[in-house]
Design a protein around this nucleic acid. Structure first.
Lengths: 406, 406
DNA sequence: TTAGTTCGTCTTTCGACTAAACAAACTAAC
DNA sequence: GTTAGTTTGTTTAGTCGAAAGACGAACTAA
């Protein structure tokens, strides 16, 4: 069945072809190696049609025949596999303290993963864009050197991003109304591929739904565990966008009206209790938080060390944090009914001590039938999740039938 | 562009035809009266194609030519209008204290709206299904008497409903694992149209997005104001379904840990404060709630009377309820970024006294740029919203290209 | 009356899928 | 070693639906 976005949007033969090319491509992605006959049987397409589609995809170097045949009765099949190598997509993740660049090929293989430090707050948007563009250009050149075509570049930013690539607001970078897409596009000298900008949580959750532990989940929520806490939401396989493009703002949920003060002026917000700075302040009271955002990894490592050493104060603090987080997770679970809520960022190393409390709170607050319900899990993708997700958005266009032209 | 649901789902000519029929149908729905040439120009379809599509739609009596022509230079156009009259869809809403039946024709005109009292908790599921089926049959007969074909019947239930029409759990009706669709189907004697069951909030929000004050909004949330409180969510123009089909469970959000006890065993849940029974108990303490759910309209009327008479206790109570509601609305607004949060059910008559507090709380808790943000509004559809939405889901199938066969 | 404009249909062409026949390549069994 | 049976993938003919453009119809303006 064909569904339509909004508005009058007629279909023609080209759409049928694109749809069916995508069907074959995705089938092979999921079932490689497989034969033409198998594709025809599974998809319901005619064998002749599949042959024609496969020929087209081989022409575009998206599929490849392998000599492999299964030794069964009858004529042996020529097996097909995805050939991701001629194309790659690039994702870049901007954070307060570092940049990450990731490139993945059409088969989903990571072909490049770089991290470089970056002084987000200390840079003007123009300087930052220059740094981002420089990293992007280096990634592009690397990809080109490997004889791959670049299909697109998507940049993840921790803040509110509008659909045209304008960063409306990014507090941890100190940005307001920065048209990052245009700036990077110009800095790259109008490259032959599309540049996009999106919210980092949106991209991270996309990465989770593709390459995470629960890859393939059509409904999942990702909680960023950085200084702030945001949620990325995949609903029915697609990112939830909202009216203005700013969903997932859960950081200032009031968890405990008598809790610690938050930067927003209220008390007991989720991120004032479970944000990484708050966790560090709670577990390591002697490390006076001076509010300056630097790389927090050393402090997080120290928190992990104390927890591992069964330091009672640390364990108690992490349990309390886990309970607060559990309240937020339970709200997400009841409101959105995801298959899983994935904890990301700095929550990952702390997960062994957070998860029991989170799960207890969730069990306690879960509505609905006894069986089933949302699970909670720590991400297995580490900090590059948003960058990987950025690259994945580019590949999604191909999977949806917009094949690169020959 | 053709988008695909999950999995291999090839497209063929029939899909192209269905898509384009739907494009024309929806264009006429939005721009009637209009000519074939106008449709062709606006949609990009060829004039000949439009003629063919229109002929098909006229054959199925979905469109009608009017004699009206615009008197401009050139050959006058034959204008087309939607002809909803030959078909109607029926929606039935089940509540703890009443049933509502609504029928709307393809043009969106309400052709029938009935309400009858109903003792939800006092009836066994079988008895209830009999009552529902009886109401459905009467509605079907009325529609048939008007020479309309029934396209489908959708039943809205306040509870968790799985995609096969099984009511997993409906606390306010006392139901568990009731296959309502099958029961009603059988009670109707296997009618020639599809019977579906869905959550009432899902259906109500659909009605809001079609026929409410904010008709056309692609992102909106509806809060049911009955004994329980649930949220229906439209995201990107489509209902949010979740993994198991049970999203929108916001009723047991903890608003005030020291608040009144809730049926779920916790204290201060949103619906223990802002559910209609809670409101009545708070404003009319002398009306001893005996837990028996009957038609609450008289009590609600009395609450309205007192508020209108500026009874200080009533005003204070409603302000407190409004604040609690505002906390819930703010969470929804920040998490989902809707264009508007619509209050439904018994909230509607109370809206003049609830909204100020809700809006104040929302303003206070809103994250994001100063300009914009979600609005709050009382529904103009009143109690039949879920029933109307049920009928609307049926019509959506037609709008999506599944035309009734000749 | 004539020129100009717009509408909607008709005819042809083209692209994409389907159905069915068929050749190719293999296994199994006698 | 031959033959029957099975499966693969291509070929050929056929169908369907949209696009393109010509064309007649119906009107206004001059």
């Amino acid at each position: 069945m064909i569904t339509m976005q909004r508005g009058p949007q007629p279909a023609d033969f080209a759409d049928v072809r694109a749809t069916n090319l995508a069907v074959v491509l995705r089938y092979v992605r999921g079932h490689a190696p497989c034969s033409r006959a198998e594709i025809a049987a599974a998809t319901g397409l005619n064998k002749a049609t599949v042959s024609s589609l496969v020929a087209d995809l081989i022409d575009r170097r998206l599929l490849r025949e392998t000599g492999l045949t299964e030794h069964r009765i009858g004529r042996p099949a020529t097996m097909l596999v995805l050939d991701g190598s001629p194309y790659a997509a690039i994702g870049i993740e901007v954070n307060a303290d570092y940049l990450t660049a990731v490139a993945i090929d059409l088969a989903g293989q990571q072909v490049l993963s770089w991290r470089r430090s970056f002084a987000g707050l200390a840079s003007s948007p123009a300087q930052a864009a220059t740094a981002i563009a420089a990293l992007g250009r280096r990634a592009v050149n690397r990809v080109l050197k490997e004889e791959r075509r670049v299909l697109g570049l998507t940049i993840g930013v921790p803040g509110l991003v509008d659909p045209d690539g304008v960063v409306i607001m990014a507090p941890n970078l100190g940005w307001h109304d920065v048209n990052l897409r245009d700036i990077v596009n110009r800095a790259l000298g109008e490259p032959g591929f599309p540049v996009a900008v999106d919210n980092d949580a949106n991209l991270a959750v996309l990465a989770e739904s593709r390459y995470g532990e629960f890859a393939g989940a059509q409904n999942l929520v990702y909680l960023t565990g950085e200084v702030g806490i945001g949620a990325g939401i995949i609903s029915d396989g697609r990112p939830l966008r909202g009216h203005r493009g700013f969903p997932g703002e859960i950081g200032h949920l009031t968890v405990d009206p008598q809790g610690p003060p938050c930067g927003c002026g209220r008390r007991g917000c989720l991120e004032a209790i479970a944000g990484i700075s708050a966790i560090i302040a709670r577990v390591l009271p002697e490390v006076a938080g001076d509010g300056d955002i630097t790389d927090l990894q050393p402090e997080v490592d120290e928190v992990v060390r104390r927890a591992r050493g069964n330091d009672p104060a640390a364990l108690r603090a992490l349990d309390e944090v886990g309970r607060a987080l559990g309240i937020g997770v339970a709200i997400l679970a009841n409101l959105l009914d995801p298959e899983v809520v994935v904890l990301g960022g700095y929550f990952v190393p702390l997960a062994p001590w957070l998860l029991p409390a989170v799960e207890a709170e969730l069990r306690d607050r879960r509505i609905g039938p006894e069986q089933g319900g949302a699970r909670v899990s720590a991400s297995i993708l580490d900090h590059g999740a948003a960058a990987t997700g950025g690259a994945a958005t580019v590949l999604d266009h191909v999977d949806a039938g917009r094949l690169p032209r020959l």
